[in-house]
Design a protein around this nucleic acid. Structure first.
Lengths: 234, 234
DNA sequence: TGTATTTTTCTTGTCGACAAATAAAATACA
DNA sequence: TGTATTTTATTTGTCGACAAGAAAAATACA
C-alpha cells in the first residue's frame, strides 16, 4: 500500500469531515491509542484527513468541551490527563449515576427498550466468554448507557456517558498490561438488573445498580493497588 | 452614541475574541435577551465584534456543545428551546444535585469556602430585600454553585452548573412578566443550609438541600400552572 | 564554561475568499 | 389561479495564506 491510498475517500459530504475527525479522535483517546499527554498536531491531522485546519479545529474545540483534550493558549494541545489523585470523585459520581439511571429505567422504560438492553447484555456475555477484555469494557459501557437511555433523563444520561467514557480510559489503562477479566458475577448481576427493570421494581433496581457499581469500583481499585507503581509516574 | 463607538475596543489580545463572544452570547441567552428560537447570524456577529467569522464560529461550537444553541447543518443556527414537555426531568436532576452537592459540601468543605458561601448568601438576602427578581435568580444560583464547589466533585459541579444555567432561563421567563418574589423562607433555608455545612452534619445538609430544592421546584411549578397559557405557544 | 540576549523556527489564531447547500423568488405551465 | 420548475440569493462549510506568540536554537558576552 503506497502513500496514494486516498482513493477510498476521494470526496466527502459537506459537513461530514468534522464528525469523522471528532469520532475517530474520540475513539483513539478513549482506547488509549492516544494516551494522556499525547500532543495533538493540527497540521498533521489536516494532512492525515486531507482537510484544511478549519474543520480539524472545530473537532478539537468539541473534544476540549468534553474535557478529552487540553488546550494551552497559543501553545500545544494534548490529550487530557487522567486525574488519579481525585479518582474517588469519579467513583463517587459513577456509583450515584449507576443507581439513578437503573432506578429510572425501572420507572420509565418502554417495551422497545428491553431488546436493546438485552442485546448489549448478550454482547457482554460473549465478550466475557471469549475473554476479550477490550470488548468487555466497550459492551459493559454500552449496556449501561442503554439502561440510562431507557431512564429518559437527558441530564443524567449526559453525565453518565461522560463518566463511562472516562471509565473506558481508566479500564483500558489497566487491562492492556494485565490480562485480567471481569468475573462471571458481573454477567449475572446484569441479568438481575434487567429482571428488576422489566418488573418495574424501582427499589430493587436501585439496590442492584448500587451494588453492581460498587463491585466494579472495588474491582478497579483492586487493580490499582496491585499495580500502584504506575501511580508514581504522576 | 453613534455607530462608531468601537473606540473602546480597538485592539484585543490574540485569543480573547472567542471568549468575549462566548461569554456575551451565553449571558444574553441565559438572560433571555436572546429568547429561545432567536436566529444566530454569524456575519452579523462578526460585524458586531469586528472579527472574522472564524472566532465567532468557535464560540458557537462551544455554545452548541453545552446545548445552549442548536445548529441545523447547512442551515440556520438558533437559541435552543426550553423543553417544557420534559421539565420534570429537569426538576428531577435539579433536586438530586441540590441534595448531593449540599451533602458533599458538609463533608468536604474547607474553612475558606464558608466566607464565599456567606457572601452570596448575603447578596441573595439583599436581593430579596430590594425585591429585585433578576438579582435573586442570579445570586441564588451563585450561592448554590459555591456550595457545590465546596463539595469538590467536578462531575457533579459540572452538571449542577448546567442545571442552574437552564434554571436561570426558566425563572427569567416567568419573572419578567410577573413580578413575583422568592419568599423570605428561602433566605432562612439558606441560613440553615450554611449551618449544617459548617457543622459538617451530612445528613442534615442532605435533608435541607432536598427540602430546599423541592420548595423551589414547587414555587416554579406554581408559576407554571398559573400562567400556563404561555405553554400553548409551544 | 555559563548566563543573557537575539534570532530563528514552529504552531496557533485570525482573516478574506470561494464553493456547496439550502431557502426564497421568479418564471413557466396547466 | 394554482402548481411545478427554474433561477437567484443567502448562508454555511472549507480553504489557503498570513501574522502573532512562544519555544528552541544560535549568538554574544562575562
Amino acid at each position: 500500500m503506497t502513500d496514494t491510498d486516498n482513493n477510498s475517500l476521494p470526496e466527502r459530504k459537506r459537513g461530514s469531515g468534522v464528525k469523522m475527525v471528532y469520532d475517530l479522535l474520540r475513539d483513539e483517546i478513549l482506547d488509549l491509542v492516544l494516551p494522556p499527554g499525547s500532543p495533538i498536531d493540527e497540521v498533521q491531522l489536516a494532512e492525515r484527513f486531507k482537510l484544511s485546519r478549519t474543520p480539524i479545529r472545530e473537532a478539537l474545540v468539541r473534544l476540549a468541551g468534553e474535557g478529552l483534550i487540553d488546550t494551552l493558549p497559543n501553545r500545544s494541545t494534548m490529550v487530557s490527563n487522567i486525574d488519579f489523585l481525585n479518582l474517588h470523585t469519579f467513583f463517587e459520581a459513577l456509583v450515584l449515576m449507576y443507581r439513578v439511571t437503573t432506578r429510572l429505567a425501572a420507572q420509565n422504560h418502554r417495551p422497545e427498550d428491553l431488546p436493546v438492553i438485552r442485546g448489549f447484555h448478550e454482547d457482554y456475555a460473549a465478550a466475557v466468554q471469549s475473554r476479550d477484555a477490550l470488548a468487555m469494557i466497550a459492551t459493559n459501557a454500552a449496556f449501561h448507557a442503554a439502561i440510562a437511555e431507557a431512564g429518559r433523563n437527558p441530564y443524567f444520561t449526559g453525565l453518565f456517558r461522560r463518566l463511562l467514557d472516562e471509565g473506558r480510559r481508566i479500564l483500558r489503562l489497566y487491562y492492556q498490561s494485565y490480562e485480567e477479566q471481569f468475573p462471571q458475577r458481573f454477567v449475572d448481576e446484569h441479568a438481575e438488573i434487567i429482571a428488576a427493570i422489566e418488573a418495574r421494581d424501582v427499589e430493587a433496581a436501585d439496590r442492584l445498580g448500587k451494588a453492581h457499581a460498587e463491585q466494579i469500583v472495588e474491582q478497579v481499585q483492586k487493580l490499582f493497588t496491585r499495580n500502584n507503581k504506575l501511580d508514581i509516574d504522576l
